[in-house]
Simulated assay, not measured.
Amino acid sequence: MNPATFAPQHFLWSFADGVATVTLNRPEKKNPLTFESYAELRDTFRTLVFAKDVKAVVLTGAEGNFSSGGDVREIIGPLTEMDMPALLDFTRMTGDLVKAIRACPQPVITAVDGICVGAGAILAMASDLRLATPQAKCAFLFNKVGLAGCDMGACAILPRIIGQGRASELLFTGRTMSAEEGERWGFWNRLVEPDALAGEAADWAARLAAGPTFANGVTKTQLNAEWDMGIDQAIEAEAQAQAICMQTEDFKRAYRAFIAKEKPVFEGN
Score class of each variant (00 low, 15 high):
A210S: 06
A210I: 04
G211I: 04
G211M: 02
G211W: 03
P212W: 00
P212K: 00
P212G: 01
T213M: 03
T213W: 00
T213Q: 02
T213K: 01
F214W: 04
F214C: 01
F214S: 01
A215Y: 00
A215Q: 02
A215C: 07
A215I: 00
N216M: 03
N216C: 03
N216Y: 01
N216W: 00
G217S: 08
G217V: 03
G217K: 02
V218G: 04
V218W: 03
V218M: 07
V218T: 07
T219S: 02
K220E: 03
T221R: 02
T221F: 01
T221E: 02
T221G: 01
T221C: 03
Q222D: 04
Q222V: 03
Q222R: 05
Q222W: 04
L223F: 14
L223Y: 13
L223W: 11
L223A: 13
N224Q: 10
N224I: 05
N224C: 12
N224W: 04
N224R: 10
N224M: 07
N224S: 15
N224V: 06
A225C: 15
A225K: 05
A225E: 07
A225V: 08
E226K: 08
E226G: 10
W227S: 12
W227T: 11
D228H: 10
D228M: 09
M229Y: 07
G230S: 08
G230H: 07
G230D: 15
G230F: 08
I231C: 06
I231V: 13
I231G: 07
D232S: 07
Q233K: 12
Q233F: 08
Q233Y: 09
Q233S: 10
Q233W: 07
A234S: 10
A234L: 07
I235E: 11
E236T: 12
E236Q: 14
E236P: 05
E238V: 10
E238A: 14
E238Q: 12
E238P: 11
E238K: 13
A239Q: 15
A239G: 14
A239M: 14
Q240Y: 14
Q240D: 13
Q240V: 14
A241E: 08
A241P: 11
A241Q: 07
Q242D: 09
Q242P: 11
A243N: 09
A243E: 14
I244R: 09
